[in-house]
Amino acid sequence: MALSARRLCHIAFHVPAGQPFARDLQRLFGFQPLAAREGDGWRQLALRSGDAIFLVNEGAGPGQPLYGLDSRHAVPSAANLCFDVDDAASAARALAARGCLMLVSPVSLRDAHGAATYTVVNSPVSNLSLTLLERSGYCGPFLPGFGPVPSEPGPNWVSHVDHLTLACTPGSSPILMRWFQDYLGFRHLPLSPGEDPMVGLEVSAGVGRGGLRLTALQTPVGSDVPTLVLAESLSGASSGKDQVEQFLDQNQGPGLQHVGLYTLDIMAATEGVAAAGGQLLTPPEAYYQQPGKEDQIRAAGQEPGRLASQGILLDGDQGKFLLQVFTKSLFPEDTFFLELIQRQGATGFGQGNIRALWQSVEDQAARYGLAG
């Protein structure tokens, strides 16, 4: 029987000392410091926006950062997903019995606010490890070993993590899907009627431009784990590298490409990010000039001009819509970006918008001489 993860605790990132990632999360995206720790050559800072928590591990000390491990990855990237479980030690034994590699045996920590136990296991995704955390009785600001950090109220643009997207090598999605099913209890979430889980949803970006294969996974009803989306490139691009292939090159393998952050007001969030200096991808002008696009936007209760001014994409029909906007990479390498997403009844991931996003990224790459 697969392990049942109850919720996502945090997403951990490893960055070099002095890298501005933590500062950018605060200044550009409204995250607020939650708790911090310094030790073993690491500075660890947990930041929060709504229920979304990012743990930034800065440095590369002789010891291990708490609640994870040093992957010694060549570029800054998302390094670890931490999930709450009922019993970390039992989970470790069960996974080890099924052949899962334990990277950190169960460790228990305690402070004045209670105790927590965690273990770290490998995943089938390159440098991305998984932490299983038991903290049901803990009532501190974050986790044992961390001290509180004074902060002022933030803009509250984000409520929670909507989804996690892993960039995968071509043909690997079925293998990854089976791993997350067998070990962590995920199950296939169809993105189209009658979808074959071994095939996923194929979204063509146009003749000679390749496209994406998307496979979505979710945990059983009652858990609070974001949807996991596996994304891989389709063959057929006539020239250059698409953004998934570029990620695989820059990240030196598969990994967490982006996090979808849910917002109740994407217009306010996007305007706030832009005003703070955050860099957003913009779709080509022709996107908003597609036949029926203006009517579709108005049917969703939105103003076409306002969406176009912020580069917000809209997909959906029959009264169910999805709005989304993407940032540029938050690292010098193209190894991680954010998505702001607002749902008006829609449950997909903007399949109809993929071509527009693809076009905007490819056009931008060509403009700066990055394609080919």
Results as ranks from 00 to 15, higher is better:
residue 265 D to T: 03
residue 237 A to K: 07
residue 298 R to L: 05
residue 258 H to K: 06
residue 248 L to Q: 07
residue 234 L to I: 08
residue 245 E to L: 11
residue 269 A to W: 07
residue 223 S to H: 05
residue 203 V to D: 13
residue 228 L to V: 07
residue 279 Q to W: 10
residue 225 V to R: 04
residue 311 G to H: 00
residue 221 V to Y: 11
residue 220 P to V: 03
residue 304 P to D: 00
residue 246 Q to N: 09
residue 201 L to A: 11
residue 176 L to P: 09
residue 269 A to C: 10
residue 253 G to S: 04
residue 205 A to L: 05
residue 269 A to V: 04
residue 189 L to R: 15
residue 207 V to T: 08
residue 191 L to T: 01
residue 307 L to I: 04
residue 182 D to G: 01
residue 225 V to W: 14
residue 236 G to W: 05
residue 232 E to L: 11
residue 275 A to Y: 02
residue 195 E to N: 10
residue 273 V to T: 08
residue 210 G to N: 12
residue 228 L to M: 14
residue 214 L to M: 03
residue 260 G to C: 13
residue 287 Y to S: 14
residue 232 E to N: 03
residue 244 V to D: 08
residue 297 I to L: 03
residue 235 S to A: 13
residue 219 T to N: 03
residue 195 E to Y: 05
residue 233 S to L: 03
residue 189 L to I: 00
residue 269 A to N: 10
residue 171 G to F: 10
residue 244 V to H: 10
residue 304 P to L: 02
residue 222 G to E: 06
residue 181 Q to D: 01
residue 239 S to F: 12
residue 212 L to S: 13
residue 312 I to L: 12
residue 239 S to P: 02
residue 291 P to K: 11
residue 203 V to E: 11
residue 205 A to Y: 06
residue 256 L to H: 01
residue 253 G to K: 11
residue 250 Q to Y: 10
residue 175 I to P: 00
residue 266 I to C: 00
residue 244 V to G: 03
residue 183 Y to H: 07
residue 169 T to N: 13
residue 292 G to N: 09
residue 313 L to S: 09
residue 172 S to F: 07
residue 241 K to R: 14
residue 221 V to Q: 10
residue 228 L to F: 12
residue 189 L to P: 02
residue 305 G to L: 04
residue 187 R to Y: 06
residue 201 L to I: 01
residue 241 K to Y: 08
residue 233 S to Q: 09
residue 247 F to N: 05
residue 245 E to V: 00
residue 283 P to G: 07
residue 179 W to R: 08
residue 186 F to Q: 04
residue 180 F to H: 03
residue 244 V to K: 12
residue 195 E to Q: 15
residue 224 D to K: 15
residue 299 A to V: 00
residue 200 G to T: 14
residue 249 D to P: 00
residue 269 A to M: 08
residue 274 A to Q: 14
residue 303 E to I: 09
residue 209 R to Y: 07
residue 284 P to D: 15
residue 204 S to R: 13
residue 272 G to Q: 01
residue 271 E to G: 10
residue 232 E to F: 09
residue 202 E to N: 06
residue 292 G to K: 07
residue 196 D to P: 09
residue 258 H to N: 11
residue 179 W to C: 08
residue 231 A to Y: 11
residue 197 P to D: 05
residue 308 A to D: 09
residue 186 F to L: 09
residue 278 G to N: 08
residue 269 A to S: 12
residue 264 L to F: 07
residue 203 V to L: 15
residue 250 Q to F: 04
residue 187 R to P: 01
residue 237 A to R: 14
residue 270 T to N: 01
residue 282 T to A: 11
residue 207 V to M: 13
residue 232 E to C: 09
residue 243 Q to E: 00
residue 188 H to Q: 07
residue 227 T to D: 12
residue 270 T to A: 14
residue 274 A to Y: 03
residue 253 G to Y: 12
residue 243 Q to H: 03
residue 182 D to K: 15
residue 169 T to F: 06
residue 204 S to K: 08
residue 298 R to T: 02
residue 190 P to W: 15
residue 216 A to C: 10
residue 207 V to G: 01
residue 255 G to V: 06
residue 300 A to I: 01
